[in-house]
């Protein structure tokens, strides 16, 4: 297992070095290695598949342009993932609209039972996340999926910690309601 890991690391290093020299074949190899995982990530941050494809394209262009800035510290996949999230964050910020800075949504108990989730595929969950408003989606993804703290999220999004917390709470409520609706509908159909 360790030998396989070392082999993969060596192969990745060779590909990265090729990319740094502008080798188009290596660039394509790098893209092939990570594109499906990153597209899966982008889908969670986008309104739809077209937006996700745009984020993926912009993100990978940045990866190739900034590849020399990757110092080899930490996971390369983590580095790419962070670039994709930053790209999604920029798109979110570019949506010029009025957003309430504060919200006083009341916390609610978890209404959805564990077994409800068992019937939902990952694709179903992505679709539910995509249905959230951009701000709720962004806060939920950054907190629940990526593990950022509210303080980090407030800095990344330019909102207050309180807003981040209330947005997360509201996002959870909406998701729970939608999961329940989905469950009720499917029960009714079945």
């Amino acid at each position: 297992m360790q030998i396989l890991t070392e082999f993969l690391v060596d192969e990745l290093n060779n590909i990265i070095n090729g990319c740094l020299k502008g080798n188009r074949k290596c660039q394509e190899q790098l893209y092939t290695m990570f594109s499906t995982r990153m597209y899966g990530l982008c889908l969670q941050y986008a309104d739809n598949q077209d937006d996700a494809a745009d984020i993926l394209q912009e993100g990978f262009i940045k990866v190739f342009r900034k590849l020399e800035q990757f110092r080899g510290k930490g996971s390369f996949e983590g580095w790419i993932r962070r670039i994709m999230i930053n790209t999604a964050l920029e798109r979110y910020r570019s949506q010029v609209r009025m957003y309430p800075l504060t919200d006083n949504t009341v916390k609610k108990e978890d209404m959805v039972y564990e077994e409800v989730f068992e019937k939902l595929s990952a694709t179903d969950l992505v679709r539910l996340v995509q249905d959230l408003s951009p701000r709720y989606r962004m806060v939920f993804n950054l907190y629940a999926i990526e593990g950022y703290s509210h303080k980090e999220i407030s800095e990344m999004m330019g909102i207050t910690v309180g807003t981040s917390k209330s947005n997360l709470s509201r996002a959870r409520d909406i998701l729970q309601q939608k999961v329940k609706q989905y469950f009720d509908t499917s029960e009714h159909i079945s």
Partner: peptide
Amino acid sequence: TDRRFRDQLRQFEAAP
């Protein structure tokens, strides 16, 4: 909610 979504979505892949 967080846990369920994270478990399913963290490694979610799709062909672009």
